[in-house]
Design a protein around this nucleic acid. Structure first.
Lengths: 212, 212
DNA sequence: TCAAAAGTGTTCTATCTACACCCATGT
DNA sequence: ACATGGGTGTAGATAGAACACTTTTGA
């Protein structure tokens, strides 16, 4: 029995910031779990789909669209005052497109996934699962497109993979694999940065999800 | 806004029946979608976790415990009379342990996954995703333990894989792989059935989920 | 000319695939 | 003795891992 359940969506927003995989957290200014850091989210009012609700939360928080959004899982019983269900999503966005809303009461900020504070509810577990899922999908999908700009060097792509997987990858094998699977393609353009040979710029062959 | 949302759990219950992968469906005797076949499920009242709710539904419907249950995904907007959320699970059970409740108004019955009628709501899509998920997980987990009795022959195991993947597998390679990954182990026992060499009986080394 | 990052090929190893014959039994 | 399904090994192909030198540029 109990009162009517509350349905909420929460979003794990990932970006590569300062060469590390980071998550967007907000500081809770009201109970429950006041003063704790937490994932952004909000109550679902039924006027839109769950996915649209997560999407909207994300745009609200970051100003970014053109991203990757995927449902993670659903849990119950986070709030023990009343029956509640939380549907978790994760999103991949390009850091440079983000404009955080600093003026807000909850100070949104990036936190490296390997240096998280203790979070409200079970948000630490949610993030851990999201990281695991993204890492697994790097291997057999093109989801990294969500984290990178239109044009990028292979080393930037590799740095992104390494930030997520937290282990070094072999440069030659990485380049071969990325090209041979066909998820990226070379452009004519070059990037010249510093006193060394210019780097070829690449793009994703598709900016929609592709499974290998 | 709108009225308070309804939360439901639904369960895709799989078993190998007559050497085919089948799903348990019930016949809806009341609106919405009266007279259509559908997945078993029910409204969540908040008195237990979502998983417990799915589990209970499953036991209610089949009488079986000792099984594999995993969350699939959550969708919204199935019922357009009011805001609603449905959390889908799938379960793997051993057919011989099941006792269907034939006397009920909704006649629960097994349906082969490749010969489904048109189902209520978007249940066809839910089942398709569940089948895909199970098939993918056969490759790198031991979840097949949910579908088989304690002791089984390798050919029975292979038949189970083939029923799910819907393609033939090589006997020698299958046996080698199952044993070398360590998900099954031989016992001393033999099964003698008919005029031929008896088959060795195997068991799963673990009846808890294992990822390779 | 030097420092710094980009670009490139080959060998080895492990894993997957394909495939055919002998074995133990009940009738 | 024969029909039936159970059990086994090897060779070829494919994919992944390891690894070092040359190229192009800006200062």
């Amino acid at each position: 029995m109990g009162t009517a359940p509350v349905v909420a969506t929460i979003v794990v927003i990932f970006a590569i910031v300062e060469a590390r995989l980071q998550v967007l957290l907000i500081h809770r200014s009201a109970p429950p779990e006041q003063d704790a850091w937490a994932l952004p989210g909000g109550t679902w009012d039924g006027s839109e789909s769950l996915e649209a609700s997560a999407q909207r939360k994300l745009v609200q928080e970051t100003g970014a669209s053109d991203l990757y959004l995927e449902q993670l899982f659903t849990m119950s019983g986070l709030d023990n005052a009343q029956p509640s269900v939380a549907v978790a999503y994760f999103a991949l966005i390009e850091a440079s497109k983000v404009r955080l809303r600093e003026e807000e009461a909850w100070h949104p900020a990036w936190h490296p996934v390997d240096e998280l504070p203790r979070l409200a509810f079970n948000n630490n577990r949610v993030i851990a699962q999201a990281v695991a899922r993204v890492g697994a999908k790097l291997d057999y999908t093109n989801i990294a497109y969500g984290l990178l700009p239109d044009l990028f060097t292979i080393r930037e792509l590799q740095a992104t993979y390494e930030a997520i997987l937290r282990r070094p990858l072999d440069r030659r094998n990485f380049r071969k694999r990325m090209i041979s699977t066909g998820i990226i393609e070379a452009t004519e353009e070059l990037r010249r940065r510093g006193a060394h040979r210019p780097a070829q710029l690449f793009r994703f062959t598709s900016k929609l999800p592709v499974v290998l």
